[in-house]
Nucleic acid binder design. Structure first.
Lengths: 184, 184
DNA sequence: CCAATGTTATGACTAGGTAATAAAAGTAGT
DNA sequence: ACTACTTTTATTACCTAGTCATAACATTGG
């Protein structure tokens, strides 16, 4: 025999993670055992059946795509006084960090700050013209970044917004954004 | 009767887009028609059955999660000479633009430039310290942004990278990045 | 009123399973 | 070599959410 029960079950788990769309029959072929054995294995490992697996993957996706366009903002806005100040919150998760180091990629902090700068403008449309940003400290997975934006005034039609992002009491990011606004 | 055939089929389409997990039976209940009618409707609209719908959504998701961590870069790198220059390409799609205006959100252009600046550094790890960026022209859905990064030199341990992004011959973005590098 | 369109019902079949039960095969210990 | 136990396989009945084909019934417009 090729594998012991334990070995097979380990491999099985990997196989299914790798390709959640595989049927018991295909697995049975692959391991040269009967379908029933595969089913006992899944039962033992509490791996749900193909359809449930697919459903699960699909639901995750649906949550993703629903979460994004709903709020065209990176991070969750928790306070917003138009043309004055705004605060948003971003929890740094796996998808935001370099997988090797666990350090957040700069453009997510930028994105949080930038989209907050867009949101704060009391206009149907706002676009970033210029930005000058500083990354003060690396942010790690699991940390919560709170960005605070403040409108500093207007200079030749462009609104200047300052954004300071903190993790707890520590400043991790600072940016100055110069925003076009659609208003006449 | 509540709806005509046409009205029902339109509503049906929306219903399914809204919640692809709904069964024919639930739909039949909702519209107070028989399951068979729903099936004829789906057939007419060529909407696949529940399981196929779910599978499709799941596959998209799988592609997403597989595509992202593979290359930790926004855009596709088409040329890379470490510590010299690099070029990447980003096709602006629906998910990159403000849905109302079709104009690309600034942080995607930033992300493309920033991740190119990270990639160009010949080191296991590179992080952005500072960045100064200008958005010269709005980029629209369907346009292809080509970012070109050049290493300009090193100043107190930080590498200066310039990134110019063009759509066709027109410059749309310019950024100067100051990068930390892990090297001793 | 009758023909066309729309709707519902029925029966046979499918994939990819669950669950329960039984039988067979392999592995150890003595 | 025989028993005891684990592991694997087979069998049967059932399930969901469909497919496809055929037939009958209902509604509406002209």
């Amino acid at each position: 025999m090729k594998y012991t029960k334990k070995q097979r079950q380990e491999k099985l788990q990997n196989k299914i993670i790798e390709n959640p769309f595989i049927t018991d029959e295909d697995l049975a072929d692959f391991f040269s055992v009967s379908v029933q054995t595969i089913r006992l294995d899944r039962l033992a490992l509490s791996i749900p059946e193909l359809r449930e697996r697919i459903k699960h993957v699909a639901r995750e996706h649906l949550d993703d795509v629903k979460a994004l366009p709903e709020e065209e903002v990176i991070g969750e806005i928790i306070d917003l006084q138009l043309d004055k100040e705004a605060i948003s919150l971003l929890d740094i998760k796996k998808e935001h960090v370099f997988s090797r180091t666990g350090i957040a990629r700069g453009h997510y902090l930028f994105a949080q700050a930038n989209s907050l700068a867009v949101a704060i403008i009391d206009e149907k449309m706002a676009l970033t013209a210029k930005a000058s940003v500083h990354f003060h400290r690396r942010v790690k997975e699991g940390e919560r970044v709170i960005a605070k934006a403040e409108v500093k005034g207007t200079k030749d039609g462009k609104t200047i917004v300052h954004v300071v992002s903190n993790v707890k009491e520590e400043m991790v990011f600072y940016g100055e954004f110069s925003m076009y606004r659609s208003g006449k």
